Amino acid sequence: MDELQNNKQKCDCGCKCKGYMILGGFALIVFVCLSVFLIGEARNAFKKYDYIGKSAETPNTISVSGEGLVTATPDIAKVDVGSSSDAYSVAEAQVKNTAIMNGIIAAVKKLGIDEKDIKTKNYNIYPKYDWQNGKNNIVGYTVTQALGLKIRDTKKTSDVLKVAGESGANQIGSLTFEIDDPEQLKAEARTEAIKNAKEKAEALVDSLGVKLGRVISFSESSGGGMVYEGYGLSKGMDTLSAPAPEIQSGENEIRSNVTVLYEIL
């Protein structure tokens, strides 16, 4: 019986030892895997730290500018017409100026200017002062109003200016001749500018002994138009028989300037 118990105890000890060995081996495997993972993460973190502040490699580039120009005859004219009236009271100045402006509107409408092409641009009332006995005294008021006119038949521009003056306008200015829808002309000018820039770039890379690569960046600025300096009519000027001024619309220039950055190979 004693021998049987001894054998049983030996068996239990052996099983326990084997269990401990298995657990120890498993723990060792986990430790090794965890250590490898942590070493890898530390290495990656070190690489990231090592590259902080270092920019990506910049390609070799060449920058060229190009210009495109398209001319066209303007199809609309724009002008500002207005009146300024003085009176002792605000109401009196308003009555005087309103009568003049309504007359101007009626006159230009008779020439075919549509309601949608007549726009009030400003309306102002301010006092007039006279310095007397060491102080400013209000001696009256001034009322001004200005209209913006769009003239779709440019041949009528001179007539519009004439009837505006005859109707009492004493402020006329900001005359411009424009293309009502310039987008197609702008596109044509841009195409010419890009072509001009590419021709310059190709000539440069031939001289440098390199090849032209892809476009890295592109920018554009555009402009054009024709503006006449405004002219005014003095308040005391007789405009009843004023002749129609000679106004020439000429041609407008639609200009595009581009800057293209190319990669060189």
Rank of each mutant, 00 (worst) to 15 (best):
L149E: 04
I172K: 00
K116I: 10
V163E: 05
V108L: 12
R152V: 00
Y129T: 15
E166H: 12
K109G: 15
I118F: 07
I125N: 00
D180F: 11
V163H: 10
V143Q: 13
F177S: 05
I138W: 02
E183N: 06
S174C: 04
D180I: 10
Y129P: 06
G165N: 12
T144Y: 06
Y126G: 06
Y123S: 14
D181S: 11
E115C: 03
D114M: 10
G140E: 11
K156C: 01
K128Y: 06
T154V: 13
N122Q: 03
G134Q: 07
V143K: 08
F177P: 01
S167T: 12
Q171G: 06
Q171P: 02
E115M: 10
G173R: 12
G112Y: 07
Y141P: 00
K128R: 06
N122S: 12
Y123R: 07
I118E: 08
A169E: 15
D130K: 02
P127M: 07
Q145H: 01
K135H: 13
K156I: 08
G165V: 09
Q132H: 06
D181F: 04
L111T: 12
D114W: 03
A169M: 15
E178S: 12
K155A: 12
G168S: 04
L175Y: 05
N137S: 00
P127G: 03
G148L: 01
I151N: 12
K121T: 10
D159N: 12
E178T: 04
Q145N: 04
I118P: 05
S158W: 15
K162L: 09
E178F: 07
D130P: 01
A107F: 15
N124V: 00
Q132Y: 04
D181Y: 12
E166F: 06
K116Q: 13
G148D: 03
E183Q: 13
E183C: 01
V108W: 07
V143P: 08
K110Y: 13
E178K: 07
E166L: 06
E183P: 02
G140V: 10
R152G: 01
V163M: 09
P182R: 00
V108R: 02
G134K: 05
A146S: 14
V160K: 08
A169R: 15
T176G: 11
G173H: 14
V143I: 09
I113C: 02
K156M: 04
G140N: 05
V143C: 13
P127Y: 07
Y141L: 03
T144K: 07
Y123W: 09
I138Q: 10
K110P: 11
V108G: 13
N137T: 08
L161N: 02
K121W: 08
Y129L: 14
L149C: 08
K128S: 06
